[in-house]
Design a protein around this nucleic acid. Structure first.
Lengths: 106, 106
DNA sequence: TGAGTATACTTCGTGATACGATGTATACCG
DNA sequence: CGGTATACATCGTATCACGAAGTATACTCA
């Protein structure tokens, strides 16, 4: 997928990935893989950004000798997803505009 | 609309704006206004990028003492629009992923 | 006549951001 | 003991949207 098109989707996809169940970086990447590929550096950047925006909270858990950071979505994060749904309507309008055939030359 | 979401749409919207009839910068902005607001600096940046990518050609025409640059879409530009239609299918998958409700907790 | 507004294109600087490259560290498998 | 999977972090770079500011013409209205 075109990188520019991806940009607007990344944040919401990450939020959607933790929406129903807390998750951690590595797992989020695996879960999103079939839907939207993203690298580790990209993901961690996004997670930090979302945390700074209070859209998720972080909790560190020891797991098999390693530390895992579990991310939990907040009310603001859920709102962001709702906002995206509204924006999707605008996207549909734009899609219509882009794909409509011209009939004016008749 | 969220700026990140806009990014992936700008190029194709501009191409769509000249798809059926050659147009010029100022007019493109006015035509896109109801659908997608963009500033002059943004538009001209995009037009240059699309020209460099051979997605459109430019022709300067004198009009009322001023010069106007008319943009004409190329085959590559039309292909870009078709490509966008294909990407839209992926977008739909992502939209499904983001909006689907979790049923696993039953 | 002169100020304001619409038309029309251009350049510069800035901030946001995706991502490859690289690094650190543990566990497991052969 | 080397390779691979897991898991997180940082740095540098390239792309890009956009506000600000500039240049120039034409029309309107007082």
């Amino acid at each position: 997928m075109d990188i520019q098109l991806k940009r607007g989707l990344l944040d919401v996809c990450v939020l959607a990935a933790i929406k129903n169940e807390d998750s951690y970086g590595y797992k989020i990447i695996k879960d999103l893989q079939p839907c939207l590929a993203l690298s580790e550096s990209t993901l961690y950047t996004i997670l930090k950004r979302l945390e700074a925006a209070n859209m998720l909270t972080v909790r560190t858990v020891e797991h098999g000798g390693r530390l895992r950071k579990y991310y939990h979505i907040t009310a603001a994060g859920l709102s962001r997803i709702e906002e995206f749904k509204a924006e999707w309507q605008e996207m549909l309008d734009i899609y219509q505009f882009v794909t409509k055939e011209d009939a004016s030359h008749d």
